[in-house]
Structures are given as structure tokens and as C-alpha cells.
Design a protein around this nucleic acid. Sequence first.
DNA 1: TATATCGGTCATAAGATGATCACCTCTGAT
DNA 2: ATCAGAGGTGATCATCTTATGACCGATATA
Lengths: 220, 220
Amino acid sequence: MTDILIVEDDRELSSLLTDFLRAEGYTVSAVDSGDRALQLFERYGAKLVVLDINLPDVNGFAVCSKLRENADTPILIVSCRTDKEDKLNGLGLGADDYIEKPYDIDILIAKIKGIFKRRYQQEMISADGVTLNLVDKTAVIDGVPVELPAKEFELLALLVENKGKALRKEYLFNTVWGSDSDSELQTIHVHINRLRQKLGDDPKQAKRLLTVWGVGYKFV
Amino acid sequence: MTDILIVEDDRELSSLLTDFLRAEGYTVSAVDSGDRALQLFERYGAKLVVLDINLPDVNGFAVCSKLRENADTPILIVSCRTDKEDKLNGLGLGADDYIEKPYDIDILIAKIKGIFKRRYQQEMISADGVTLNLVDKTAVIDGVPVELPAKEFELLALLVENKGKALRKEYLFNTVWGSDSDSELQTIHVHINRLRQKLGDDPKQAKRLLTVWGVGYKFV
DNA sequence: TATATCGGTCATAAGATGATCACCTCTGAT
DNA sequence: ATCAGAGGTGATCATCTTATGACCGATATA
């Protein structure tokens, strides 16, 4: 997965930004149309999206809401449209920020750095007796160290990271297995089941890993 | 803990913002100096801080870095200082955003809402004792958590979102079921019925989910 | 080579949902 | 007051989701 996906049809600006971000150590992909963006995102994902609104094909807002449908990847909207309506629209669609063009590239980078730091620089995540060390992939459940296989660890980490939020099965699957996986969606049930056993959770009376019927699962 | 701590020495602006945020359902505390801010934060905490930079006593940046020392509470810096240096400084200190004065209050609120949603999974709509959390799909009715099946949740959410407004049955149906659904319009009666039971609403004497004869339903 | 673990598929069981039906009640125009 | 049509409601049941034990091949491990 690349760090940053730039969606921008101004080639010059796009490559400038790409260079600056690469210099900061991020991996960057750049596309110049909304369709390409969605395609690329679906296939490979990204940790953050810099999204221009005026695109040659689809409207940037449409791209934003498509991206938001099953991922909460941070989105920075960048646009020369300065109307209040546009801004409210973008923010309402779940964009993390709406930055007017022309922008100062240093400030954009500072914002990106901030988001990465807040969002991805976490080493430990924990909730309700479950602590996961993302660096050495170890888990402690109710004070007892537990060995978790890779897939189970990733799945649990994703759920704990988004604790309180109901996550769609498709999202879980795409994130942990990858959307190009040839496994079946059903596999997820089996893994949830195994996790629950290790968490000491009875599905009928689950305390931590709850089923959200018709949607997916959530950790509380 | 209050939701939002406003640190702003312009009394008028401060109380205006307070009013707007309260109207959105947040609890708000406001102080007019840096020392007070730190004091209050230390004592009671806050889920988000709106921080002015030009304060009568301490410099706002100092407050920001103090706050960051032992808490990762989101901070929105608001300032009339528009230098690039100031912005980079603020963002570098861990502020989530640096907003120039004068700002549009609607946009500030949109940003605050976004942060609450991303950070605390709080995206709530509520009316008259009914609160729906759209993120984790949970419902609280008169203080009691209630399990709602997907269809019922969507239907209720739609009604609460448009509280006070009578919605045509056809509209409700198309929105919740989809216009290409092959179910019968009548189904809606059954679901309304089930919702009323869970709301403790008697149709003859409905308090919340009213029938608008010949039209549809409305929530009050 | 023998063994254990992981990660996935399958079949089946168990459960929840929600559409429909049948019948009842209410509304309001005539 | 009557009546047609709108709305309400309990029961039923097909369908879709989820849970779970069994099994199996691949891969790592001893």
C-alpha cells in the first residue's frame, strides 16, 4: 500500500507535490482522474488521499464520498473553489480538511505530517483489557500474553483501532485480506469465531467482539 | 468532562461560538486566558480545544505545547496571525488545524463535527429522548439502549433526521428500501408498528412517531 | 521425515430478519 | 350513520446471515 495517493489533473502541480512528499519519505502514487483514483484505491489502498475537486471526469466530491463508503482513510481536499458551500460540502462528506488553491506546499506537508503522526504513528492500541503492540505483534488479553496468528492479529487490530464503530464485513475483508484475495468472504466468520474463543467471548452474549447484524462486527 | 474548551479572550466571539456549539448539542466551557485554560483542562479535561493564539497572559503556542505534553486531545488553533511561520509552528506543535481569523463559524463547526466523528465515533442525531449513533448503529431510547434491526434503524434515522417534517410513505420506502425494491409499500406499516412498540408509542395517542393521514409519518 | 500450526473451505446448524397475509380499526367524506 | 379506503397489528414463514465443528493442503518446525 502506498502512503499517499494524489488525485490531481494539473500535471505540474502533481509532480511537484509528489517530489516534495517523496523527499519527506512517503511513498506516493499520483493519478489525474477520478476513475483512476477509485480504481487504484480499490486495488491497492492508500493511507491518505490528496484530492483535487475539479477533475476532468468525475466530480471530486463524488470521489470523496465513494472513498468514504467503506474506508475512513484521511482525505485532504485541495481546490480552487473557495465557496463556503463547497467547503461545507467537502467537510460534510468526511474530508479531513479543505485547502484552498493556491496553497503553500510547506503547510500542506505540515498538515499531512500531522495526520500521519496522529493516525499511524501509534505503537500500542488497547481497549477493554485487550492490548496490542503493533510493532512486535504481540497481544495481551486480560493481562495474559496470547499468541495470535498473523491474520487474527490484523483483524483484531483493525477492530480495536476502530473500537465502537461497526465495520462492514467487506471492509474488514478488503483491509485484512486485500480486495484481490481469492478467499471467500465467509472466511471472516471463521476468524471472528477463533478470535472470540481467545477473547473468551460468547457470541450470543458477546462482551467485546459484537456482531452487528446485517453489517459486520464491532469491538467495544 | 465537557466536550469543548474554548480559549478566547474576545468575549463576544467566545460567547457567539459557545452558543453555536451548544446548539449543536456539545457541552462547552469557555475561558479567556491561557492559565485558566490549562487549569481547567488539568482539572476537568475536554474532548477538543479551540485555542486562540493571542492571549492576554501566556502565548497560545505555549498553551498548545503544554496541552500536548500529556494529552492528545485535538486542538484547533484559531488566530489572526497569518504568517506562514506561525502556521507551521502551530501545526508542528501538534495542532489539528490552524484557522485564520476572521473565520466562518459554520466551517469551524463543520471541522469540529468532523473531528468528533473521526476521533470519538460520535455522529449522533437525536430528538425527544431518542438518540441514534449513525456510526455504530446503536439506539438509545429514553436512556435505555435498544437493539434495532437494520431496516428499522434506517427508517427511524430518516424520520429523526427530518424531525418535524411529514414524510410521504413513498419517499420513506424509496429511501430505505430502494426504488427498485420489489417489496410492497404496505411493509412500511409493519415496520412503523414495530418502531412504535419499541418507542413505547401508542398510535392512537402517539407522542413521537405520528401518522399524517393520507401522507405518511413524521417524528416530533 | 514426522509434527504442529496456520489459514482456508465446506457442510450444517442455529438464528434473526423482514415480507406477506388476514383481519381489525380508524378516518372522514357523503 | 354509512362506507370505502387508509392505517394498525399479530402470526407465519421463507430467506438470508451468522456460528461452528470438521477437514485439508501448505508451510514452517523439530
